[in-house]
């Protein structure tokens, strides 16, 4: 058996925790985390809208920080704990944000939806009862071209209410 030849190998083994599960994957140093998630790990729920940090479709949570995964290298994920849209819901169920997006019709084409749900889930962790303005401010890094944001804002308000019902 021949060990890896470090002179010709172009890929690095990355160990990380993704959606609560320890994983190992091979990444080229130039590949973004977004590419690794989608093309290497088949986690295609995380979307690419711009690949330069301006649309939020690729947002994931990395060690408690909301990041544009297109601006993180795959190799930077080593040792990190990452949550993607696929890890937002409990097994067999939906996250309150997902339920609220469905009930409020907060998606049309849906390409932006995973990014919005991941971003909004972080907002609700930090601010249990955000106002309309706070929601708009937090979500300004996520572009949606279909909805005009109205129903997205309502969905986040509904999810906040579902998670922490008013007394």
């Amino acid at each position: 058996m021949v060990a890896v030849d470090a002179r010709t190998a172009t890929k690095v083994v990355v160990q990380a925790t993704i959606n609560g599960e320890p994983v190992q994957f091979l990444a080229e140093p130039r590949q973004t985390l977004l590419e690794c998630l989608r093309d290497v790990l088949s986690l295609t729920g995380t979307k690419e809208g711009c690949a330069d940090g301006n649309c939020g479709a690729c947002n994931v949570v990395m060690d408690g920080r909301l990041v544009n995964s297109c601006l993180v290298l795959g190799v930077e994920a080593a040792g990190a704990s990452i949550t993607t849209i696929e890890g937002i819901a409990p097994v067999g169920g939906l996250h309150p944000l997902q339920t609220a997006f469905l009930e409020q019709a907060a998606l049309q084409c849906g390409i932006c939806t995973p990014g919005f749900i991941v971003s909004a889930s972080e907002l609700l962790k930090r601010n249990a009862r955000p106002t309309e303005d706070e929601i708009r401010f937090w979500l300004a890094g996520n572009l949606c071209r279909c909805t005009g944001y109205d129903k997205i804002v309502r969905a986040v308000l509904q999810a906040a209410e579902m998670i922490h019902p008013a007394a």
């Binding site: 940090g53 408690g64 990041v67 544009n68 971003s119 972080e122 907002l123 937090w138």
Partner: peptide, 14 residues
């Protein structure tokens, strides 16, 4: 890196 997490979630728009 652009992240919304760097902004406080509760800051009030002006």
């Amino acid at each position: 890196m652009t992240t919304t997490a760097d902004r406080p979630a509760t800051s009030s728009p002006t």
